[in-house]
């Protein structure tokens, strides 16, 4: 299906790469086994009826396993080394503006392409269309999904800017987090109820496959360069912000749209 490799790579390198795709494949498959086991148990013991369209689902699961494996492998060979190197370089460079701009773009760029977020945004648009919350057409759905993803992307960008600023200043993380949840609670009272569920969910969705490793690299890079910061604590802080701000921004998105 996919052999998007440069043909100039030496055979040995290709072999090593294929082997590591295979290894990640078994890893992704292991993630699926518990899901398959639970579903099979409920189908056989509780419902006692066959799963409809089972072949299609199985083919789809193969797509999921192979797709996730290639995706993770691609991140590891290409993007993570580049992103980590840059995070360290910016942490050392000492220009505040450049660092903050990089933090924003990193948060935005990695979140917009996050697979779990694409899934949730697509579902949200579909449901909003069916419920008549937005005009029910193919184009308005995809616009809604895109806007939702852009909103979450911007919010993670802002989260990283605030988080980086916090690491530089050494503010304690829990005041900001608890204050942020206060804002969430307050905004929930004013936001249209249709957006609340989506907003709360988008907080948990953002911190996943692409975002966490790159963001952690930035946090750890900064914390190592600046004196008196512990990598474990400060790398964590960024991720906590990245799951908080999407709630605030998506609630605001619901109030505006």
């Amino acid at each position: 299906m996919a052999a998007p490799d440069n043909t100039t790579a030496r055979p040995r390198e290709m072999l090593a790469r294929a082997r590591s795709v295979l290894r990640i494949c078994t890893g992704s498959f292991r993630d699926l086994v518990p899901i398959i086991a639970v579903v099979a148990f409920f189908q056989i013991v509780v419902l006692q009826q066959p799963f409809p369209d089972v072949e299609r689902v199985l083919v789809g699961l193969v797509f999921v396993v192979v797709g996730l494996s290639l995706f993770v492998q691609g991140l590891q060979i290409g993007l993570f080394p580049l992103g980590e190197g840059m995070a360290h370089a910016f942490a050392r460079k000492g220009s505040l503006i450049a660092l903050l701009a990089f933090a924003f773009c990193l948060g935005f760029g990695t979140t917009v392409a996050e697979p779990a977020l694409i899934a949730v945004a697509a579902k949200a648009a579909e449901v909003a269309g069916t419920a008549g919350f937005i005009v029910d057409s193919e184009s308005s759905r995809s616009t809604y999904a895109l806007h939702l993803r852009l909103t979450v992307g911007v919010s993670v960008g802002v989260a990283l800017v605030v988080g980086v600023f916090r690491i530089l200043k050494g503010w304690p993380v829990h005041y900001l987090i608890i204050g942020g949840y206060g804002v969430v609670v307050l905004m929930t009272g004013f936001a249209p109820p249709e957006i609340v569920g989506i907003a709360y969910d988008s907080g948990g969705v953002t911190t996943s496959t692409i975002t966490v490793p790159l963001v952690a690299a930035l946090g750890v890079g900064l914390a190592t360069v600046i004196r008196g910061r512990t990598p474990l604590l400060d790398g964590f802080g960024l991720i906590a912000f990245a799951s908080l701000t999407p709630m605030i921004f998506v609630l605001a998105f619901g109030m505006i749209v």
């Binding site: 299906m1 699961l61 797509f63 999921v64 797709g67 290639l70 995706f71 691609g74 993007l79």
Partner: peptide, 22 residues
């Protein structure tokens, strides 16, 4: 560049599998 190609192919397959299976 190779990494981007992998990411592209992988994400595409994942999204198709998402609609078909998950």
């Amino acid at each position: 560049v190779a990494g981007f190609a992998y990411v592209l192919a992988g994400l595409t397959l994942f999204l198709v599998g998402l609609q078909e299976a998950l």
